[in-house]
Structure formats: C-alpha cells, structure tokens
Design a protein around this nucleic acid. Structure first.
Lengths: 194, 194
DNA sequence: AATTAAATTGAGACTACTCTCATTTTAGTA
DNA sequence: TACTAAAATGAGAGTAGTCTCAATTTAATT
C-alpha cells in the first residue's frame, strides 16, 4: 500500500499518525471501489487499525472522502506549481500546467480516480485546481491573445475537458497524444490567436 | 410516478406490462439515488409488484440499469430526430440538435440524471447519441466549414461539453444561456469558419 | 370448464455493512 | 516509576439490502 500521507507524519503525534494511516487506507479503497462502495471496514483493515478507531477521527464516510479529496486536489495542484515555467505567454503557461496536472493525475492512479469523483462533489476542489488557470486566462485576455470575454463557465468547460483527458488515460493508459489534443482544444475554447 | 414506458405497453402481454412497470419504477429510483444506491426493493415498491418478481425479468441491478440507460438514450435521441431542421448548414444542424437534446434531458429530469450516469458506463449510449453529431461534423469538414481533421476524440469532447451543460441545468434549473454558450464552444472546438 | 403453462408472491436465509461503548492499551508527563 | 489523559479496541446491536424457492395466483389454451 502507498503510505504517502503516513510518511509525512512519521514523527508526529499518535493521533496524526493514525489519521494519516486512515487517509492512506481510504485512498486505496476509494480509488478501487468509488465513494459509495468504499466501506469503512475495508479502510481500517488497509490502515491496520480497528474498525472503531475510525470514528475517533471521522464522523462517517463522507467526511473522510472530503478530507481525502481536498488533500489530493492540493497534491495535484502542486504538480502545477513545481513545474511552472518562466515564459510570459499565458497560452504556454496554460498548456504547461494542464500537461503536468494531467500527467500527475494519470501517474498516481488512485489520486486521479478519486479526483474525478471528488471534483463535482467538493466545491473547494474546483476552486483549488482553477486558480492558475483563471489567472492565466485573465492575463491572456488582457494581452488580447484570447479573444473572449472572461466567463467562469468557460473555466468549467476547460476543467471538464481536462477531467475527460484524465478519465481516458486512467482507462487506457498514459497517452501524451490525448493530453496534446486536450491542450489544443483548450486553446480553441479560449479563441487563441496564433 | 411517471408511467411513460408502462403506457406504451398497456395492451401488451402481462410479461411486457410487468417489465414496463419495473422500468418506470427503476427510472424513478435510479434518478433519485444513483446506480449504487438504487435498491431493487425500492424499484419493485414503486412498480407495485413483489420483490421476487424483479428476478423473473432481470438478473440484477446492473441489468435493469443497462436496459433503462439504453431506453433513455433512445428517447433523448428522438428529441434530435423529431426536431431536425432542413437547412444544409452542418453548423446549424449541430446547434439545433444539441439544443434540443439538452432541452429534453433537462426537462425530463429523471432521464437527464440517469443519462449522465449511464453515458460512461454503457458504451452503446455513446454511439447512439453521437450518430447525428458525427454525420454533421464529417459533412462540415467536407464543406470546409470546420477546419479540422475528423477525430473520434473531438466527438467525445463535444459530448463531454453537452453532458456538462445538462449537469449544470439539472442542478440550477433550465437556462438557455448555458446551452448557447455550449453551442458556441462546440463550434470553437470544430474550428468553425464564420 | 378443465387443464396447463406462465407469472407472481413474500417469507426468510444470507451477507455486509455502520456506529456505539465499556474496556483495554498506549503515550506523554510529573 | 507511577499516574493520567488520550487513543485504540472489537464485540455486538441495529439496519438494509440481495436473491431463492415452494406455494399461489393468473392467463392462455383445449
């Protein structure tokens, strides 16, 4: 089992270590079974703790899902931050961010799968992953590169295309062509003047 | 309860009438609870039949979901056929079909909700609802109206935008502006030369 | 009307969970 | 080391379903 969040808490309090174990267990089960079929029993089994312990830390399945979803959104957004490029071209920035976001989501399959399910369910996630996109779109519009008026709906449409690229690649394997086509379509939506 | 499919079978055999009752019941429950939480118990209650009767007609929840999903896809595609316009402009045809498809999906909420869930799950649905779209796209490319190469992936992207428009309107109410923005984005994806 | 075939019924055996709580164990502190 | 507060435990009560099958009812046929 991937102990990503446990490893972060190795030297933290017992409470935090147990929470992290639950989180890692939950990620495994949520990714494999989806929210509705992810039982708390199986999460605690994977985490190596007793069933009842779960309830010392979380109220129910929904609350662990919320926490896991947010943590994953933050980790995936990190992939954007870490790989940010120095160009001033907003189109380039968007393509770069999109590419790395998709790449990471597909490489860490459990994250990708949970992200797909959590995106519509947890409002904070939409915000978290849209930050850079919104900044670069507004910038591109100001520079007259994108011949559109700014509109939240177009941001959502772009997100939906990104989610689709992730979904496909989680199903049929990593494929840079899919990501490139997605980038291309995003620029079309933004009415990018080449 | 909406008895749409039962009404079609009013003068059919007992077997067909019972099946139709199960289908109508299942639609109600699937729309309200989603696939995973739609119990067969509740479906048969709504249908006004005994629990065990379900199993004379369907193997399990998945098999009724498949049938319902396909029936709904066909009904929604009907909304395209019925409203087809005579223009030869493929762009117009696509916008018209999209508009009516979204409208119907949003008006019959149960259908819209089930369609959203079934689209990725049941391959036949993707095919069924893409038929007209593919025809018009190919036509538009031939006429040099859409400056792209034909690609199944772009069809999927368009579908994904349509699904998104439906999802939003099921959540926040019918809104022609959302549909229009979606149509506009579809033409952008097709690189439509105005 | 009698017969047979088809369809329906619902009790109940199974399965699989959620969540609580009295008890035990562990960690941190004096 | 002894103490105490925090955390973990897991048995079990409660809930909610799936699916089967012997018995019954209904429909169709002769």
């Amino acid at each position: 089992m991937n102990k990503f969040f446990q490893n972060k808490e190795n030297h933290s309090s017992k409470k935090n270590r147990t929470r992290a174990a639950i989180i890692d267990g939950a990620i495994e089960v949520l990714a494999k079974k989806g929210f509705q079929n992810a039982s708390i029993r199986e999460m605690t089994e994977k985490a190596g703790i007793a069933n009842g312990t779960f309830y010392n830390h979380y109220k129910d399945r929904r609350s662990i899902f919320d926490e896991v979803g947010k943590l994953i959104a933050i980790e995936l957004t990190n992939a954007i931050e870490i790989n940010e490029i120095t160009t001033k071209d907003p189109a380039q920035k968007i393509i770069n961010a999109t590419t790395h976001f998709i790449k990471r989501s597909v490489q860490v399959k459990a994250w990708g799968n949970i992200f797909l399910e959590a995106y519509e369910e947890i409002p904070m996630i939409k915000k978290e992953v849209s930050r850079y996109l919104i900044r670069d779109i507004k910038n591109g519009i100001k520079k007259k590169l994108f011949k559109i008026k700014y509109d939240d709906f177009i941001v959502e449409q772009i997100n939906v295309l990104i989610l689709h690229a992730i979904r496909i690649q989680l199903k049929t394997g990593q494929d840079i062509k899919i990501t490139n086509k997605t980038s291309n379509s995003i620029l079309h939506l933004l009415n990018y003047q080449r």
